[in-house]
Amino acid sequence: MARRSEVETGGAVPAPAAQRRSQRLDQALELVFLLALWQVLSLWLGTYWISSPLATLAGLFRGLASGELLLHASYTAGEAAIGFLVGGIPAAALPFALRRMPVMTAILDPFMVGGYGAPKLALAPLFILWFGIGIESKVALVGVTVFFIVYFSTLSGIRALDTRLVQMAQVMDANEHAVARHIVFPGAVPYIFTGLRIAMPYSIGGAVIAELISANRGLGYLVQLRAMNYDTTGIFVALAATTCIVFLGNWLVNALERFLLRWRPPADAMLQADA
């Protein structure tokens, strides 16, 4: 996953074609190797325990063709997306609002740390109790999970503020609002995206888990249903679909980041600098 996203960000400024091709080749080999491993495992342990890649693929196509899979996937993706926004937007906004209130930030800090550390998935039954088995409980779980991740990454972005840039702007007579808008915010955007990128898979995961516990639709519900029927392949299909959504979400976040952060030196250069 991590490796993949690096490659994608690197795409902003095309690496030499040969290098890119060899990266693609590496990825393809990796995929083939994993699929082979999976096939071997399923042969060895039997398809009752581990479905085979081919059967999963066939199941995927069947599910897609009947529209069933797409329907459930769209519920899950929708819950995750709404929860992502419901949790992510306030989380990115709050540190800006608190920027001039260090006392308030300090008072909130233990609650935030607690919320960040608490196992949010354990909240799922509570949310279902409060909000029912519909979309609300899933959105709540996803929102809470995303909120704390994005809050802390945004906060660190604000703390990493380059005060020399602020002084430069103040000398030019920029007021508090202009400083926030033109310096603090753009400077924090890379950090916000770090949070969003980490939170993305959690948001899908959160939605699926909440569906597992109680729902009448969604990929988690599908997993639950098929588990009761001892339909191993069916479970694999649902999980594969979940993974596809994660990839899609990842791609979206990366594309948005690449667009908003086009002022940054290309990731290739940064990778080299890190190494």
Partner: peptide, 29 residues
Amino acid sequence: RQIGYITQDDNLLPWRTCLGNVLFPLEVQ
């Protein structure tokens, strides 16, 4: 804005283009 200060480090805003940086003071003023 009675005293302008060209600092030792250029302190350009990395998210603004060359021209965007030059326009920055005019914009905030």
